[in-house]
């Protein structure tokens, strides 16, 4: 059809194409504008302001001064910061695989169709996620009590002496337990919904080929939910690095086991709110943001590699 177009018309598309393009440029901005304004204000501005803050140092005596990257060099040599980062990294390495493993197991069990009372099971696993983290931590804090709490009751009932879950050696484990309890249901739901969209024809084909349940899981289900696994892992990484609520609330019960620099976020919090070191606090927050981004991105690259 295009062969029949006469030569003079060829110039027209160029002109007409240019005009809408020019008008379109502004129209587009008009639509995106409100979003961009809000985005800049509530998303970019705080980050930019934090970066700005991190380049200064405000003192109680002596006022404010530009110090360049001094806050960053200080952070790199700050043992409190590194030990807090080490602690959440350990938490990440141990708690996240356990939590995701349990979530995956439960999701596969639900999806297998061999479970009685599936809906009840599903909702009760998910329920803890609906409990706010603060309430969950308070609840577990009571249970961990060696005197009037559940641990105390067990000790009394059996005449034994369980180790104190809130002692310095065990407190990270206790926090991991709370987080796992809270988030297994959430991750299970991500996995389960990914499993639900696997076409039944694949299972039928597998059955015809004589594949057993294990084979189905390994060759169909797991590859099908790879994306969900990666997403859940990334969420968990971010959550681990941002650990704050649970230790912060338990600190009241175990002030000596949970220091003010227990996790990077707690460190930033106490620097800012009890030490008025807003500048250094901003620095710690920015470094943690970058670390989280790098680790999450690395996981995403690795997780998505084979799919591309």
């Amino acid at each position: 059809m295009t062969q029949t177009v006469p030569p003079p018309v060829v110039a027209d598309p160029l002109r007409t194409a240019r005009r809408p393009a020019r008008r379109g440029r502004w129209t587009g901005w008009g639509f995106v504008g409100p979003f961009m304004a809000v985005f800049a204000l509530v998303f970019l501005a705080p980050i930019v302001y934090s970066i700005y803050l991190s380049l200064f140092r405000q003192q109680l005596v002596g006022g404010n001064a530009f110090v360049g990257f001094e806050n960053y060099t200080r952070a790199f040599g700050d043992p409190a910061f590194w030990s807090s980062l080490g602690r959440v990294t350990l938490f990440l390495a141990v708690q996240v695989p356990i939590m995701l493993g349990i979530a995956l197991l439960v999701a596969l069990a639900l999806d297998s169709g061999r479970l009685y009372g599936k809906s009840f099971f599903r909702i009760s696993i998910f329920m803890p996620y609906a409990v706010p983290a603060v309430v969950a931590t308070l609840m577990w804090g009571f249970m961990y009590g060696t005197r009037f709490g559940l641990v105390g009751n067990i000790n009394d009932a059996f005449g034994i002496s369980l180790p104190n879950p809130l002692s310095p050696d065990l407190v990270l484990l206790s926090i991991g337990n709370i987080v796992t309890w809270s988030f297994v249901g959430y991750n299970m739901l991500i996995f389960y919904s990914a499993l639900r969209v696997v076409p039944a024809s694949l299972y039928e084909a597998a059955a015809i080929d004589g594949a057993g349940q294990w084979r189905v899981i390994r060759s169909i289900k797991l590859p099908a939910i790879r994306g969900a696994l990666v997403i859940a892992t990334i969420f968990s990484i971010i959550g681990s690095f941002q650990l704050f609520n649970e230790p912060s609330i338990l600190q009241k019960l175990a002030p000596n086991a949970i220091t003010t620099s227990f996790t990077p976020n707690m460190y930033a919090y106490s620097l800012s709110f009890s030490g008025q070191q807003y500048n250094y606090s901003a620095t710690v927050a920015i470094i943690m943001g970058l670390v989280t981004m790098v680790v999450a991105y690395a996981v995403q690259l690795r997780g998505m590699r084979k799919e591309a």
Partner: peptide
């Protein structure tokens, strides 16, 4: 009972 702190923390 502040929520988890993020990059914007210092912009209190």
């Amino acid at each position: 009972l502040a929520g988890a702190l993020s990059l914007g923390l210092a912009a209190c």
